[in-house]
Simulated assay, not measured.
Amino acid sequence: MGGQDVRVWVDRWLPSLPLGRSSPIGEVVVTRNLRVDTLICPQSRDWNINFLLPFLSVVDQEAIEGYRWLQSRSLSVRDHLLPYVRSIPDELWKRIWKTMAFTCWYIWKAQCNYVFNQVRINPLNVVLAISNAVGFFLAASSNYAVNGGRENVGQTPSRAPYWIPPPPPFTRINVDASWFKMSSSGFVGVVLRDAEARFIAVAWYHIRAPCAAAAEALALLRGCELGASLGYSEVILESDSSKAVSCLLNSLENGSWEAFLTLERVKTLGEAFQNCHWSWVPRSANMVADTLTS
C-alpha cells in the first residue's frame, strides 16, 4: 500500500481543530479523500512545504524555516568534516566511545551519591576518577590484545600502568603500607613529587595496626600529615588500596570498622587542604612507595 492509497488521518478528538478536521488558512480544500502522497513532493521526496504552509500559522512557518536552515547548515558541516571523520582510525573511535561511557557512568554515580548520601559533588574528583578508569581500562585492553586474547596468569603485564606527574599546581603524594599479622605491625611509605616529577620528600614509618585495612588507612593519614606539614595546599593522594580510596570517595561506612576512625581523620585532614583529591592506582604506578614498605 503506497501513499496514493493511504488517507491522511483526521483526529476528531483534537480540541484545537474545529469540526475535528484541519482548517487551512489558505484556499486549499481538505476532503476525506486527501492522500498521503499529496503531502510529499514527487520530485525530491521531501515534504511538500508549499502545500503544507497554508495549514500553519506564521509562527509555525518561521520555526520550520529556521529548522530547515539549521538542518542545511548541519548537513554542509557534516559533508565538510566527513573526510576527516572517516580518516580517524577505528582504534581511536573505540577509545572515544569508551571514554564517553566512563564519563557518563561517573557523572551518574556522583549525582546518585549526592542525592542519596548528600555527598557534595566535586567536579575535579569526578574528572580524576574518569581519567584513572579510562587509563587502566585501556592499559588492560592493550595488554589483552598484545597477548592474543590470553590472560597473563602469573605474568607481569607487558604494558603495566606507570606513575605520571600531576598537573600543576598539584603535588602527588603516593602512599603504601605493609602489614604482618604475627606482630600486628608494619611499615608505611610516603613519596611526594611535583608536576616536574621531582622528589620533594620521602618518608618511612613503623606502625602498629590491627589489620591490613587499618594499615592502609594509616598510610593515607601519614601522607596527609606530611603534605600539610610541608605547606602544600593542592594535593593528589594516591594509594593502591582500592577499598580505602573508595571509602574516601563514597562513604566511610562501606569500609572496615578497624579503619573507620583513621579514615575519618584522613578525610578531615583532606578537607583542610585547599584542593585535595583521592585516587586509586595499581601497584605498578605506586612502586616507589611500595618499595619503601618492603
Rank of each mutant, 00 (worst) to 15 (best):
S76Q: 15
L82Y: 11
W69E: 05
K98Y: 03
V85A: 08
L75S: 09
R86G: 00
H80T: 15
G66Q: 06
L75E: 14
S87C: 07
R73V: 09
T99F: 02
D79V: 10
W93V: 01
P83F: 13
I88P: 01
P89V: 04
I96G: 03
K94E: 02
K98S: 02
L70E: 09
A63H: 11
P89C: 05
Y67H: 08
Y67K: 04
Q71Y: 05
R95D: 01
W69P: 01
P83Y: 13
W69Q: 09
R78H: 10
R73W: 10
R68N: 01
T99S: 05
R68M: 07
Y84P: 00
V77S: 11
V85W: 15
R68L: 14
Q71M: 07
V85E: 08
T99I: 03
K94W: 00
R68A: 06
S76M: 12
W93M: 04
Y67G: 01
D90W: 05
R73M: 08
A63C: 06
G66P: 02
K98L: 14
R68W: 06
R78F: 14
G66F: 04
Y67V: 10
W97C: 04
I96D: 03
K98I: 07
T99M: 06
P83Q: 03
Y67F: 06
R73D: 03
S87L: 06
L75D: 11
R86I: 07
